[in-house]
Design a protein around this nucleic acid. Sequence first.
DNA 1: TGAAATGTTGGGGCG
DNA 2: ACGCCCCAACATTTC
Length: 481
Amino acid sequence: MTKAAIAPIIVWFRKDLRLADNRALAAAASEASVIPLYIREPMESGNGPLGAAQLWWLHHSIKALSDRLEKQGARLTLRSGEPLDVISALARETGATTIYWNRRYDPSGIATDTALKKGLSDQGLTAESFSGQLLHEPMRLQTTTGGPYRVFTPFWRALESKIGPVAPIDAPEQIAAPKSWPQSDRLDDWSLLPKRPDWAATFTEIWTPGEKGAADRLEDFIDGKVADYKRDRDRPAVDGTSLLSPHLALGEISPAQAWHATERLQGDGVATFRKELAWREFSYHLLFHYPQLPQRNLDRRFDAFPWMNADDAFVRWTRGLTGFPIVDAGMRQLWRHGYMHNRVRMIVASFLIKDLLVDWRKGEAWFRDTLVDADPANNAASWQWVAGCGADAAPFFRVFNPVLQGEKFDPEGAYVKRFVPELQRLSPRYIHRPFEAPEAALEAAGIRLGSTYPEPMVDHAVARDRALAAFRKIKGSAEEQ
DNA sequence: TGAAATGTTGGGGCG
DNA sequence: ACGCCCCAACATTTC
């Protein structure tokens, strides 16, 4: 009996927009004909829908996936609506009785999938889920006392000891087609791309969404940059990071593929990179065990923190008009590329939280809407980490000095100059502290503070004291949960 | 995956 | 030769 003769299997793509190392797809392709499906789900509860920048990415990624499937003789079906309604309708139309997908681990995704599995089985349909979004199922790692990890280092040791050789699987060689293809929405009708203004036009300067773009990035990184990753990853002016995050976020590449590519290498660089993959695992571990992570302080003492939450200050931060060059460069890189270098993310986050006393959740929401790599676990865990209220967090009193951080990690000011062109001609000596430059130096560089570039919106030394005073108010109050 | 304040040490200038 | 001061340079503590 040929595969086309038996009932097709629906493969529901979610955050796994790839053909390689896709266990749901591989299993389906080995058993029957396949109907690949992508569902535009209504507003997810909990973490909210994808942000605007990631919708841009999603459009191109779906297009890439669809093209790749077509080369294999398959067609991606696009549908909108509640997954249960969509899948049961599609099953009726096509005679499919089985649905495969790869598991997701964010709270709203889990809730949706759990209810869905039950709903489908009530209709006599079978759903089966596979792993692939993470190196390790979050429920499989436990501390010796039986709880989830809250500190990275022991988590990392446990992960490392368990992981062994990783074996990603190849894309299916053949994907059998069903007797007929179901009706599909048109991708363009989903209006995922911004128009008027097309603020994403500059994204293509550095990004190529899709499985091929992801594989190219990985190859490029493994063949070169990874050797000096430990040193270069903290230099925002240097192209020293993997740039895999947006590809990982929508699953155009799996962490297993990335990990596997490192297995033939050794050295500081690759060890540091593996650790970064492990931070992503740790974030999902936290999100899985603390589903309120995006909304609630892990350290409940922070519930009483006296945030100022000044709207005008927040807006200046989002625009990159704080008057601190390294902060402004980061926020403008975010506008331009839907991305920000990780070192700079820490600096701008510290500035928002500690210098401006704006609640980390406002920063988290902004990043979620503007980053092409927005990831519910990484984003929430990292903001809580900077704020000092998270698991294994940097203590609140660790306040970044934006001038010193700039001078340490962008000594020539090349990163600043790339994204803050009005400071182009200022010497490295003052590039991170234009407000301390002599009048003559500013004039020679064509800068007038307060008109061509903003005055600093706070005195950092004063702001630091203010933050520490605010922190003292909650320190020692009710114990953490 | 800090920064600033405070403490300590040791070399050199100098009376 | 010696003590004293100064102050980098580094170490430790504190936030």
